[in-house]
């Protein structure tokens, strides 16, 4: 009997078409969208990318990191160093951010992988703190109080003039469009790469290591290699996102760039509320988070209190998040990574 192993479903084909349509719409959006919508979408896309990357290492890889702010921070600072110390253009300097995060991830993984399970989480947090304290000693980049991108660097970023001409925008608005496109590129690229990874042999190995380290090794999976690979790749991408966020912000300080609330707590809440261990989860989660943020962020501490309680309630009553609830009821999977065996009998095949 002929058989076929596939992850494709009818829903996933429809979803792929819709996703392509959305990406195309996203690309041409600056032609008619308002500046504030572009800024909101920039926020949504960057948080989505960070949440997908955390979801990759924690949800699919079982490595619960509370130290992702280290990569955002070091990425942002490396970009600043490129611009201020070596006179780079901010956009190519984003690549420096990715590189710096990758370099930081090597010692971080070396230390943190010595800690098991829950202790891994605080281990990553300690290393992020050490990085923050060291960066705060870097006096040429403002030390503990931080610094801003010089005006001459932000005034002629590559491509911004062309965007300004194309859409007839002022420079500041054109910079937002540029940042938005880069965020769209990173978000789509990250999700496509994670989807491809999870459907590959390495993705299967990653899930096996998460579910049972020893059993995975017994069938020939090189658990260390898989974990290193995924951790470093996520760090690199997180560094790029961090650098991009601070190209847009143009002002940096160690406390903001290495903030555990902004870059790890929010990101974890997005993944938890949307659904851990699924690509659809963070997408839904970031929309819920953005809606809450827009409606209630003015309430400050009360808002964060409620967000923390919401995460607890979600873990207690819907541990697989909102998307988990939807998927359990409908069996829907927009970006399926589960392999299904399809047998073709002689009659139809």
């Amino acid at each position: 009997m002929a058989h076929l192993v596939t992850t494709r479903t009818r829903a996933s084909t429809v979803a792929a078409v819709i996703a392509l349509g959305l990406v195309a719409l996203g690309l041409i959006l600056p032609a008619f969208a308002s500046r504030s919508l572009i800024q909101d979408l920039f926020f949504i896309l960057t948080m989505l990318t960070l949440a997908q990357l955390w979801n990759l290492i924690a949800g699919f890889g079982g490595m619960v990191s509370v130290g992702q702010q280290a990569f955002v921070g070091i990425g942002a600072y490396a970009m600043f160093a490129g611009v201020i110390l070596w006179g780079w253009d901010p956009v190519p300097a984003i690549l420096l951010g990715g590189l710096a995060a990758l370099l930081l991830a090597i010692p971080m993984a070396f230390f943190a992988f010595r800690l098991q399970g829950a202790y891994f989480a605080i281990g990553t947090w300690v290393i992020a703190e050490v990085t923050r304290l060291l960066v705060a000693q870097w006096k040429t980049l403002g030390g503990g109080t931080g610094t801003s991108l010089p005006r001459e660097a932000t005034s002629d970023i590559i491509g911004v003039a062309a965007i300004a001409d194309l859409f007839g925008l002022r420079d500041a608005a054109a910079r937002d469009v540029m940042a938005y496109w880069l965020a769209l590129l990173l978000a789509v690229g990250t999700m496509a790469a994670i989807h491809a990874l999870l459907r590959s042999r390495t993705g299967l190995a990653l899930a096996a290591v998460r579910d049972n380290d020893n059993a995975a090794q017994s069938v020939g999976v090189d658990a260390r290699r898989v974990k290193w690979l995924v951790f470093l790749a996520a760090a690199l991408m997180t560094g790029l996102v961090g650098a991009l966020i601070y190209v847009q912000t143009a002002r940096i300080s160690p406390d903001a760039a290495f903030s555990v609330t902004n870059w790890t707590a929010y990101v974890i809440f997005i993944a938890v509320i949307g659904g851990i261990g699924r690509l659809e989860g963070p997408v839904l989660g970031v929309l819920v988070f953005w809606a809450l943020q827009t409606a209630f962020a003015d309430y400050g501490a009360i808002y964060l209190l409620a967000l923390g309680l919401l995460a607890i309630v979600t873990m207690l009553f819907a541990p697989r998040g909102l998307w988990g609830l939807i998927a359990d009821r409908t069996g829907l999977a927009l970006f399926p990574v589960q392999r299904r065996l399809i047998l073709k009998g002689p009659s139809d095949g």
Binding site: V64, V66, A118, V272, L304, L307, L309, A311
Partner: peptide, 13 residues
């Protein structure tokens, strides 16, 4: 994962 995330939520709350 669940106990870690619950206590993390509790920390923020």
């Amino acid at each position: 994962l669940p106990p870690l995330l619950v206590t993390f939520g509790l920390s923020v709350a």
